[in-house]
Computed example of a mutant assay.
Amino acid sequence: MRAHPVRRTVLTCVATVTVTVLALSLKPHHPPSAAAPPPTTQTPGATSGGSTSGTRTVTGPTVQTRYGPVQVELTLDGSRITAAHAVRSPNGDSHSREINASAVPVLDRETLNAQSAHIDTVSGATYTSEGYVGSLQAALDQSRT
């Protein structure tokens, strides 16, 4: 048996309104925003100024993510990244701490392997990964000035 045309129209309208309301209730994705970069810190015996030679430590800006702040610190020898470490990562709840306990070391290793901010996102830690890359790229940019 076929549905009555008015009933079909009503069901179609209800379905359309439901889908529209669901779509509008989704939170939009905003890319991580970077704060003003902090000054470059020098390690003992490192060169100063805008030089890209010598060993130095550069700390990227804190990037706010949906689950908390992410900030990356790099150690460079010349233009080579010799160490990468997230000095801040989301830790507001046990779930975030658990995720980042495994994701941050992966991001640190990927940075050393890539020698750039062109690293893959860690599955299950997308927001942390995006914040990490934002802070990492800003630290690399800062190291070149």
Rank of each mutant, 00 (worst) to 15 (best):
T145I: 13
R2S: 11
V58F: 01
V10P: 02
T9D: 08
S102G: 09
T121H: 01
L74V: 08
V122A: 00
S116P: 02
R80S: 12
G54V: 13
G68T: 04
Q137T: 07
N100D: 14
I81F: 00
C13L: 15
H95G: 05
T62F: 01
P5N: 05
R2E: 14
V87R: 10
A84S: 10
G131W: 04
G131A: 11
V19K: 07
P44Y: 09
G45V: 14
T111M: 07
P44M: 05
G49S: 09
V104R: 06
G54R: 14
T52C: 06
A83E: 12
L140M: 12
T16S: 15
C13Y: 04
S25D: 08
L107N: 03
T59E: 04
T126L: 08
S94Q: 10
N91C: 11
P28V: 12
T62A: 15
T52Y: 04
A125C: 05
R56N: 01
G49P: 02
P61N: 12
Q115L: 06
V10S: 06
T43K: 08
S51Q: 08
V17C: 09
P5L: 10
T75N: 06
C13A: 15
H95P: 00
P38K: 15
T47P: 03
P37I: 00
S96G: 01
S48L: 13
S116N: 06
A3Y: 05
R8Q: 13
R97L: 06
A34F: 03
T57Y: 04
S96Q: 14
A23V: 15
G49E: 11
P90I: 09
T75K: 13
R8L: 12
R56L: 14
V19R: 11
I81W: 00
T82F: 03
R56K: 15
L26T: 13
H30W: 14
T59V: 11
T128H: 12
H95M: 07
T20C: 14
G50W: 07
G50Y: 07
G45D: 09
D77K: 15
H95D: 09
I119D: 01
T18G: 12
V14C: 13
L136R: 00
V14H: 10
A139C: 07
S33E: 14
K27R: 15
S143Q: 08
E110L: 13
T52S: 14
T121V: 12
H118V: 05
G78P: 10
H30L: 15
M1L: 12
K27D: 12
N100W: 02
G131E: 04
A23R: 12
Q142W: 01
P37N: 06
